[in-house]
Simulated assay, not measured.
Amino acid sequence: MKQDEKLFKEARITLTILKLLLLLLVGLFPISKFYIFISENWPEKIENLENIPPYEPIKKLASAPSSKRMHRADNEELIKYGEELIRNTAYYIGFKGTEKQITNGLNCQNCHLDGGQKPWGNNYLSVAANYPQIRKRSGKETDVYGRINGCLQRSLNGLPMDSTEKEMKAMAAYILWLGQDVTKGKKAAGSKVYPIEFLDRAADPIAGKSIYESKCTSCHQSNGKGFLAADGRSFVYPPLWGSLSYNDGAGLYRLSKFAGYVKMNMPFGVSHENPQLTDEEAWDLAAYVDSMPRPEKDKTNDWPNLADKPIDHPFGPFADPFSENQHKYGPFKPIKYWYENQKTIQ
């Protein structure tokens, strides 16, 4: 009896092993067929490898310090007032300002979005690390106060303030606080304006007008005058041309600056993560807006070294043979190549 039980047990073990082997074979069969198929169809070499675009990781852009850190600063109240001035400049120093009446009614954050904090929104994050500096536009050393006055006199078409005035001290304190995490001499990723590439053609104001009419009039109106706030002190949406807009000495009067700015920020609400304008649309829109009338700035002393003038600075004289019209609307690549060739010759 015990012998029979032993034989029966061995038979069960053998049967179990056979079942496992059968299952293994059934599972391996399709895998082996797949391997044979891949082996037979695998190319000997990969064609057009050079046409495969390289992987480009999304670069992390710098961000402003958390507002929670502001209370650690010894001059906390001054910094807070500075932020308020940047966000609501016109209320305090606009044409109906409560403290002064020295600007056109625009707010600093109309050009420096989100209080000068937005990535590719012409933010202030690199200012503290790079000022004072010798600016090519003036040919002189400029500190943060001088930088602010440049905006007041050009973008806000107004009057400068003295470095001892409370409003100037506050604005400078806030701008310097924003850049506290940037290493001296370095530039924060995503600061200033997005460096949009030059087109192969000239920017087209006529095409830009169509873009403006379809994407911009709901905020800035068809006449470019924007919408004045109910208090009559500032604008809900700023004027893009006319007597209350930025003058022709402002940075945004250069097409590359305007195009890079709107590419990453307009229509209002978009960001570098979801741009809506193509490069061509951004350039053409810039050409249209900057072809419209606006206040004139005395630029006599700008760019003392002619070779330092930006390619898209539209006022002569120039160190190159190209016309004012081409310096304003392009095409800019021939001008760029001309200067590069001059450096090679030298």
Rank of each mutant, 00 (worst) to 15 (best):
K2G: 10
K9Y: 13
E10W: 05
A11C: 05
R12W: 04
T16G: 11
K19H: 11
L20S: 12
L23R: 04
L23T: 03
L28T: 03
I36N: 04
W42R: 15
W42P: 06
P43A: 10
P43E: 10
E44Q: 13
K45A: 13
I46C: 06
L49W: 08
L49Q: 15
E50M: 11
P53L: 15
E56T: 13
E56A: 09
P57D: 14
A64N: 03
R69L: 13
H71F: 05
H71K: 13
H71S: 15
N75C: 05
K80L: 15
Y81M: 12
Y81I: 03
E83L: 04
E84M: 11
L85E: 13
L85F: 12
L85G: 07
L85H: 05
A90H: 11
G94W: 05
K100V: 14
K100M: 08
Q101H: 10
T103G: 10
L106Q: 13
C108K: 06
C108E: 06
H112P: 01
H112F: 02
L113W: 10
G115S: 13
G115L: 05
Q117K: 11
K118G: 06
W120K: 12
G121F: 05
Y124F: 14
A128H: 02
A128Y: 00
Y131A: 04
Q133R: 12
I134H: 02
R135T: 11
K136H: 09
K136D: 15
S138E: 10
S138M: 09
G139C: 03
D143S: 07
Y145Q: 07
G146V: 02
G150S: 11
C151F: 06
Q153I: 14
R154Q: 12
N157Q: 08
N157P: 07
P160D: 08
E165S: 15
K166E: 12
E167K: 00
M168L: 12
A172N: 15
W177S: 06
L178R: 00
G179F: 00
Q180Y: 03
D181Q: 04
V182F: 00
K187A: 02
A188P: 00
G190V: 03
S191V: 00
V193K: 07
V193Q: 01
I196K: 00
L199V: 03
L199G: 08
A202I: 03
I206P: 01
G208S: 11
K209D: 09
S210Q: 14
S210H: 08
E213L: 14
C216K: 04
C219N: 07
F227E: 13
R233S: 10
Y237N: 15
L240S: 09
S243I: 14
L244M: 12
G249N: 04
L252R: 03
Y253P: 07
Y253A: 01
R254M: 14
S256I: 12
S256N: 09
K257W: 04
G260A: 14
P267S: 12
S271V: 02
D279E: 15
D284S: 08
Y288W: 06
D290R: 10
S291L: 07
S291I: 08
E296L: 07
D298L: 06
T300G: 07
D302P: 07
W303A: 02
A307K: 11
D308P: 05
K309C: 15
P310S: 09
P310Q: 06
D312L: 12
H313R: 01
P317I: 13
Y329M: 11
P331K: 12
F332R: 10
K333V: 15
K336P: 04
W338R: 01
Y339H: 10
E340C: 03
E340S: 03
